[in-house]
Design a protein around this nucleic acid. Structure first.
Lengths: 146, 146
DNA sequence: GTAGGGTCTGTAGTAACTACAGACTCAAGA
DNA sequence: TCTTGAGTCTGTAGTTACTACAGACCCTAC
């Protein structure tokens, strides 16, 4: 009785629902090559099993962590190769972490300028405004080069 | 002699160069309705004066501060109306500042997860990897709802 | 006159989705 | 059985904010 195997068979919308994603995104990832094409039923409907559920979860988690699709593709290639190493995954993740930190630094810069100018703002019904002065001035902020 | 008025007349690429922007972006902003269409010379070349230089600078500064084009459009409408108030500008800027802070919070969340998992990573040539475990797990991170 | 570089307009591509439309499928209800 | 409404399919297009390319025209130095 315990050797009964319960396999999952869900359609696209159900897959999206189970993974907290969007059904169109599922198709998009398939088109992008991140999700392998699943089996189909007689009507041509996609039928997903456990493998696809796991795979999609991986992709979604990585996206949530801010990895680009290309970066996700790289991680998947490591995993798919079957001989990923902790070292390689770590290298990629640290690169990504550095990007995240750079973005934070950028946003903090912006936050500082905004906070400073709004606090200098009288908030009155007057036409003079430090914020507009900032926007009208020569370059005052620095952003990380793209 | 001091009543000599020097007016600026530059073409698109020069305008972009003077403002540190991209000549295609200039056209894009015109198409988007943020930059009024300038005068043209006999050949049909756009000729920009001081007004346009100032206007483009405003837009670029606002973009650097992370305002969306729609938000910039709103700020410009205030300025163009000629009776902007410090109160209204401040309200919009504070809304935007709140967005920036939310983004920072999001990224910090991501940073925390990434830093934690990479530090747990042995960095060795082994197949076990906490980062992949994180990506393979059920939802572990929370993001601000879009 | 020629050549090379600049400007024009229009269109398309990028990244990462998201939505829509017409055609087909499915299942419940009359 | 037929109808209806919802679901799935494929293909295409739209969003945001750019960026690039192509063919046609303009400009200037040689």
């Amino acid at each position: 009785m315990s050797d009964r195997i319960v396999t999952t068979s869900v359609q696209r919308a159900e897959l999206a629902k189970r993974t907290g994603s969007n059904l169109e995104t599922v198709r998009y990832y398939e088109k992008a090559g991140l999700m392998p094409e699943p089996q189909r039923n007689r009507s041509g409907y996609r039928i997903y099993g456990d493998y696809h559920i796991r795979r999609l979860r991986f992709i979604l988690r990585a996206r949530e962590l801010g990895f680009t699709l290309e970066e996700v593709r790289g991680l998947l290639a490591l995993v798919d190769g079957g001989h990923q190493t902790c070292a390689e995954v770590q290298a990629r993740t640290e690169r990504h972490l550095a990007d995240v930190r750079a973005k934070i630094a950028d946003l903090k810069r912006i936050e500082r300028v905004l906070a400073k100018t709004t606090s200098a703002c009288s908030g009155l019904d007057v036409p003079d405004c430090p914020i507009l002065e900032t926007l009208n001035s020569e370059r005052t902020i620095r952003r990380r080069a793209k």
